[in-house]
Design a protein around this nucleic acid. Structure first.
Lengths: 174, 174
DNA sequence: GCTCACATGTAATCCGTTACATGATTCT
DNA sequence: AGAATCATGTAACGGATTACATGTGAGC
């Protein structure tokens, strides 16, 4: 069985303390969503696959009458995760932005509208950066209290990069 | 018929001077590839669709015995393109990076390996930025000679952002 | 003569999302 | 009582890539 990136995402979230599939998805919604989104329809089958191959262990963990499965990493799972983290293979970054495509094609617009477009892009960058600073970074820093520091590092990198792009676009505007 | 982003990509490349499907794909490989990749298997059917609905016009343009189709924008095509460029709808930015996911999960590594990971990421950012400065920006600036200035703007934005991230990671390393 | 770039398409496949289906618990 | 959240899954669908299939022209 071949582990792909979503597999390592699941393994990683388990390592960061999530236990159920639902909890994994919730955690990604305020963290990896910005650089590696996922959905419940991916998480649940992935957990099942990982269990079948011995990377995670499932325990029944009901809350009253509500069924719940608690997963934890096996030694094989931990080993696979750290091996992947250390691996030096070139990650194919993949970025898709309608907004940048619009900017690329902006010569088709009149000067006025070009300016409006740039302004809109800058607003978007500003809003995204702000949201990260307001919502994402605090959560990541709370997590850092209990150990893992890199989620906060990544959150700051994201917010700062948005800030940089916003400044760049402001210069362009002028 | 509903036009989606790949449709506008094709319309936009036609406007920038590409004529055949092959030429469109070649052009994207050194430009929009970084923020909106595509493939021949998308371009050819898209051109056919656009022609069926009157957004582009096809002319046969053989090179000797080699068949070739030359497309050009109709008025409807130009109008659709500019309308889309001016539209103020929120573009769903989509970013996927295995590298950043690794960084996010780096707490699972020993300090040594964390450092190695950050260094690798920085190298990657440096290489990408350099490549853009060496290969992409010159092409975009050549294009600017004949009119369209925004491709060069976007290329510079990309290179500078990579540069910023590289610097950020260098600070993290220290 | 051979390899690479030019040129056009279709078919198979993969991956991911949305929608569907079901039910318990907590909060207002 | 009703809405939102917790919780788990499957099915249908869509969009994009890779592989397949075919042929010409140019350069070495």
């Amino acid at each position: 069985m071949k582990l792909r990136t979503p597999s390592y995402l699941v393994l990683g979230m388990l390592r960061l303390g999530a236990r159920s599939g639902y909890a994994i998805k919730k955690a990604t919604d305020v963290s990896t969503r910005f650089f590696w989104p996922t959905s419940l329809a991916q998480v649940y089958p992935e957990l099942a696959r990982l269990e079948r191959h011995g990377y995670v262990e499932r325990h029944e963990d009901p809350q009253g009458a509500r069924v719940r499965s608690a997963y934890e990493l096996t030694d094989a799972g931990t080993a696979a995760l750290t091996a992947w983290l250390s691996a030096a293979h070139d990650a194919p970054v993949q970025f898709r932005s309608e907004a940048v495509l619009r900017l690329y094609l902006a010569d088709a617009l009149a000067h006025e509208e070009q300016l409006a477009l740039v302004r809109r892009l800058r607003q978007q960058a500003r809003r995204e950066g702000e949201r990260m600073r307001r919502e994402i970074i605090p959560l990541a820093e709370a997590l850092a209290q209990s150990g893992p520091r890199y989620p906060a590092v990544v959150a700051r990198l994201g917010a700062d990069t948005y800030g940089y792009v916003e400044g760049w676009l402001a210069t362009l505007e002028a």
